[in-house]
């Protein structure tokens, strides 16, 4: 598996579990020098886990890494790198930040997928994952109707874009036998997840990252080309667009 944003949170948990399961993991993060936990796992992995410097917003770096790894088949390309939901106030939407979010979240997913399609195509499993969100279904944003005072409309919109991107990519890549699915990893008890808690909420409501990743691993183990283009919750439940 190649995964982005591997130095913390759910990304780091992906690395931990896949390492234990004996996978070869290409763990990418912006600043490997500061990724102490990731480096520790890599050091003990007998070369199975390697750490690669990758800022997903830097398309030149993406192309360079894809070139360096050109002979490596990648069974699962995991576009895990994500960003914290925005806090938007009605009437004061920060459009500059919105454009940044488009580059960091949406375009990075598209670019990394483009650059590593050849690697995925020559692998056995041929899977590309994109990260949806609890808030990304247009039919039921946030699991219910959006209400006055909701402060995440920019994040929701960008994530809806990711889901369409995944669906469109699935059409392009199906002839190559590549499966593309978008998965909502759940609101997990990670540094990023905790930052998104309201003052009156406790970590009890957050999902255990170990459970999130274990469940998503079970889900991807079962994927076939029939499921390409689908949108899932971490537990394997199919979500509406």
């Amino acid at each position: 598996m190649l995964l982005t944003g591997a130095n913390r949170g759910l990304g780091l948990e992906w690395v931990r579990q896949l390492d234990q399961a004996g996978w070869r993991v290409l763990a990418c993060c912006r600043n490997p020098a500061k990724a102490a936990e990731l480096n520790a796992i890599a050091a003990k992995s007998k070369g199975r886990v390697t750490v690669h410097k990758l800022d997903v917003t830097h398309h030149g770096q993406v192309d360079k890494l894809a070139h360096e790894l050109r002979d490596v088949p990648i069974d699962v390309l995991n576009n895990n790198a994500g960003v914290l939901p925005t806090r938007d106030r009605w009437g004061e939407t920060d459009y500059h930040k919105w454009q940044e979010l488009i580059w960091t979240n949406l375009f990075s997913t598209c670019k990394v997928s483009e650059a590593f399609t050849p690697h995925v195509a020559k692998s056995r499993r041929k899977i590309i994952l994109t990260m949806a969100s609890t808030l990304s279904s247009v039919s039921m944003p946030g699991g219910g109707p959006l209400v006055w005072g909701d402060e995440k409309h920019v994040y929701r919109t960008t994530k809806a874009g990711i889901n369409m991107l995944a669906k469109s990519m699935s059409g392009y890549l199906k002839p190559m036998g590549i499966i593309v699915v978008s998965i909502n990893p759940g609101w997990a008890n990670t540094e990023m997840g905790r930052q998104d808690l309201e003052p009156d909420q406790t970590t009890d409501i957050l999902l255990d990252p170990v459970v999130s990743i274990r469940s998503m691993r079970q889900l991807i183990d079962k994927l076939t080309l029939n499921e390409t283009g689908n949108l899932y919750k971490w537990n394997g439940e199919e979500l509406p667009p």
């Binding site: 949406l106 247009v138 959006l146 929701r156 919109t157 809806a160 369409m164 469109s168 283009g229």
Partner: peptide
């Protein structure tokens, strides 16, 4: 969407729908 065309346009309109929904 099943198609393989116009990823940017499709993505923009799906996102525009989310804006309308919001």
């Amino acid at each position: 969407t099943t198609g393989d065309t116009a990823i940017a346009y499709r993505t923009s309109k799906a996102a525009a729908n989310m804006v309308a929904k919001n």
